[in-house]
């Protein structure tokens, strides 16, 4: 307490913000688990035959690849490889934007014929993809801020909590899609 009063920085062990982030992700997962269960309670395993399977697979591969590049970015900065870090982080951001374009600009217009309120499946489809896309968008914004800070040399070995936290959030968004993709496109 006296250190606080005197304005000294207090070293917080990294496990404290890590634990906080995991709690946040756990609370977020409740939202997505609710949406996932609502999909099966309201619609069973029904899915319309007209769903664009190729697009669903393409955006899934894009998001999985973005997790791969995000992981590479995190490892690179932990090893002090700033240019590799920035390159992979930029690739992650671009893949995130491509995912958003695939969902919002391509998939949604195609799926308008079962848009709510005329179709129960449309209600769960647009709610689930919309909520997920909002999280992808926020992830892209966070990663862009990290990229900007990274270009200024803010991160390096031993000072990379910002990178770690942003990348963990990005992987979480990927995990959500790991469950949403089969629930929306593959079950029958």
């Amino acid at each position: 307490m006296s250190a606080l009063r005197e304005g000294h920085a207090i070293a917080v062990p990294l496990r404290v913000p890590r634990f906080g982030l995991w709690l946040f992700l756990l609370s977020e997962s409740m939202i997505f688990a609710t949406l996932l269960s609502a999909r099966f309670i309201l619609q069973g395993t029904y899915r319309p035959a007209e769903l664009n399977q190729a697009l669903g697979l393409a955006i899934t591969l894009i998001l999985l690849t973005s997790s791969f590049t995000a992981n590479r970015a995190e490892i690179a900065i932990a090893h002090g490889k700033t240019s590799t870090f920035l390159r992979n982080l930029l690739a992650t951001i671009i893949l995130g934007i491509l995912f958003l374009i695939g969902v919002v600009a391509v998939e949604w217009p195609e799926a308008m014929h079962f848009a709510p309120p005329s179709s129960g499946y449309g209600t769960v489809f647009f709610t689930m993809t919309g909520m997920h896309a909002a999280h992808v968008f926020s992830g892209v914004v966070i990663l862009s801020l990290i990229y900007r800070l990274g270009r200024r040399g803010a991160f390096g070995p031993g000072r990379m909590w910002g990178v770690e936290g942003a990348v963990k959030y990005w992987h979480f968004v990927d995990i959500v899609w790991v469950f949403f993709y089969p629930a929306l496109y593959l079950v029958r």
């Binding site: 697979l57 997790s67 490892i75 593959l186």
Partner: peptide
């Protein structure tokens, strides 16, 4: 560094499991 290689193996595993999902569906 080996974490890079582990990351690649994991990515390969994710792609393989996705292929299995499509096959199962």
């Amino acid at each position: 560094p080996s974490p890079f290689r582990i990351g690649m193996w994991v990515f390969g595993g994710l792609l393989g499991l996705t292929a299995m999902e499509i096959a199962a569906a």
